[in-house]
């Protein structure tokens, strides 16, 4: 609990929000997958998003770095509004790092090359410097000794930690996590969650889609519950989990608890 308390103090409530979604709607064909989403996230805030599968969690966070385009509403990230303008797209991709459920490491590059690729080609960093930076982050996620191996030679948990290091090498202001542990075996989940807790301790703004309740309680400032494309409830983790206000959340929580 003490860790969580120290963590929570980093939220800057009076600054302009790091991310703001206002009236966001999205359709896949005729399927209405995001319905009037309104969400402001402050700098340094850590938000956990949960909800049943297919409820639009991935779609929402993928709209934030524009891997998906929204069709109505307004998304502002770090003061930049998302639009068709390619300049704004470049700027946002630099500020927002993303970690995927299926790692998506580049199999033809070594761990070190995976981490230095974007710093060299996007940040225009000299290779030496990029490698030093990459090693720093690889040490932070505690796998510097794997730097010269290829992704295929690493375990799932190690790969996911590399993916986190790879995103961090761009020095993003905001990190998005899309179910980072759900493709992992149970014994590997902890090593990845520990890495994420450590990241939270540095004051990073984070949005995590995850069903790891323990992680949410320990780290999250706020939990957002989504169902059928809309945000049904938001609140402080303990309050939300212990005192769900809607039937939908109750049902979801009972399913999750049964699952564990």
């Amino acid at each position: 609990m003490s860790a969580a308390e120290t963590l929570h103090s980093s939220v800057q409530t009076n600054a302009p929000p790091a991310i703001s979604l206002a009236g966001v709607n999205k359709w896949f064909g005729a399927l209405h997958v995001l319905r009037d989403i309104n969400l402001d996230i402050a700098l340094g805030e850590r938000v956990v998003v949960c909800g049943p599968s297919g409820s639009g969690k991935s779609t929402m966070i993928r709209c934030i770095n524009r891997l998906e385009e929204h069709q109505q509403g307004k998304i502002v990230v770090d003061g930049i509004e998302l639009s068709d303008d390619l300049k704004s797209l470049d700027a946002i991709r630099r500020e927002v790092g993303m970690v995927f459920q299926s790692f998506n490491l580049f199999p033809h590059l070594t761990i070190l090359e995976n981490c230095t690729l974007a710093p060299i080609w996007v940040r225009k960093m000299p290779k030496k410097e990029a490698e030093a930076l990459a090693m720093e982050y690889l040490e932070r996620v505690r796998i510097p000794e794997q730097a010269l191996k290829y992704p295929g030679q690493l375990s799932g948990g190690q790969q996911q930690r590399v993916a986190i290091a790879r995103a961090l090498c761009m020095k993003p202001k905001i990190m998005l996590f899309d179910e980072p542990t759900s493709a992992l075996d149970p014994e590997m989940i902890k090593e990845v969650l520990d890495t994420m807790v450590m990241l939270a301790e540095t004051g990073m703004t984070m949005i995590c889609v995850t069903h790891e309740m323990g992680f949410a309680r320990q780290v999250a400032d706020r939990v957002v519950f989504m169902d059928r494309g809309e945000i049904v409830e938001t609140g402080e983790p303990t309050a939300l989990f212990e005192n769900p206000q809607t039937e939908r959340l109750q049902l979801f929580l009972s399913q999750i608890l049964r699952g564990h």
Partner: peptide
């Protein structure tokens, strides 16, 4: 437990993006 806040009803996607025309 409050009865569920009514869910946002699904709306039609902006015209021209669905159906035959879409």
């Amino acid at each position: 437990i409050t009865t569920d806040s009514l869910p946002v009803a699904p709306r039609l996607a902006p015209a021209l993006s669905v159906g035959w025309l879409g």
